[in-house]
Design a binder for these strands. Structure first.
Lengths: 171, 171
DNA sequence: TATCTGGGTTCGTATGTCAAACTCAGGCTT
DNA sequence: AAGCCTGAGTTTGACATACGAACCCAGATA
């Protein structure tokens, strides 16, 4: 996988402890059957308990628990609304923190569209101003995308567990 | 959430069926306690069953099942290696398909580092050529990042379930 | 007063997860 | 050759979680 001619050094453990790795923390908090699907619904603008339930097909108890957890995590906000003269109800909306999951989720969508599906993506992300289609990429601070081959990484010295270990190859 | 002056139209269901939505498909395949953590280990270069097991703390049976599923999904590849004169063993490596999960996972890492942790990220992604730190963004086909406010989306007409529904706001 | 609706909670069962024990193959030791 | 070690699993039985159905409750409505 690596492109040096040397044999890959064998990595026996992750270089970063799980409780200090944002990736691991995110994976742990989103890692179950329903949580990410709930957030997807939220992005599509579905906010009400019963709509979520029918759309997802999740059991009420589970949905209730996941919503509670997401509110507790600051991803969703439960807030009241009134439709006509109906009594006050509550809807679940993305907080700013939740909205910032858009990028990971869009990246996941691109991956899923490419690898888990034959049809082209039914959802196009594009620029309001220019109409150009958009994709997810790694960019410099100035906002210029760089090609895969130019990407590498380093572990901050004070958190290293095992010595430097090159990622197999960044996609 | 929307920035038009109009009240948000109430969305009662996702505009795209789950079995045609790359995001939903990806969420379903990665959505459990261990799968994403296994892929994270793979990115860090941990490839052997027992290393994965000790690093993750997952029960053997579960790890075995997840690895099988990931191999079946074409994310990992089980292939033989020989260390010294030891007998042939097998290691699990990311396929190209697996490598392409780097972007979603890095985006997730950025999110996790920002919201689930106080310390700065222990892992820096940067450009080999310029040394500039890199971040995940939405870019035009030419590779120019666009600001959040310029991002919108549309559902392909032949797959729409409910009518057009604006994302609350893209982060 | 009875009924409907959205938004839950409760409950018994089915399924999944867990840790420990067992297996198995090949190499190493004695 | 007999026994031990190691990596890579499978099996097992206790335990936890998910599941769907039924129930609950508040307020509006008939």
């Amino acid at each position: 996988m690596s492109n040096s001619g040397l044999p890959d050094p064998v990595v026996r453990a992750a270089p970063i402890p799980r409780d200090r790795c944002g990736m691991a923390l995110a994976c742990e908090m989103l890692g179950d059957r329903w949580t990410m699907l709930v957030i997807r619904e939220a992005f599509y603008g579905v906010t009400r308990f019963d709509d979520l339930r029918t759309d997802l097909g999740a059991p009420r108890g589970i949905l209730s628990a996941r919503l509670k957890a997401l509110v507790a995590a600051g991803v969703l906000e439960r807030h009241p609304y009134r439709e006509g003269k109906a009594r006050v109800r509550h809807e679940y909306r993305l907080t700013r923190r939740g909205q910032e999951l858009a990028l990971p989720l869009i990246a996941l969508m691109e991956w899923g569209d490419r690898h888990l599906q034959d049809a082209p993506s039914p959802l196009q992300i594009y620029s309001k101003a220019s109409g150009a289609p958009l994709r997810v990429a790694l960019v410099t601070p100035e906002g210029q995308a760089v090609p895969r081959e130019d990407v590498t990484y380093a572990v901050a010295e004070d958190t290293i567990i095992s010595a430097k270990a090159p990622l197999p190859r960044l996609a």
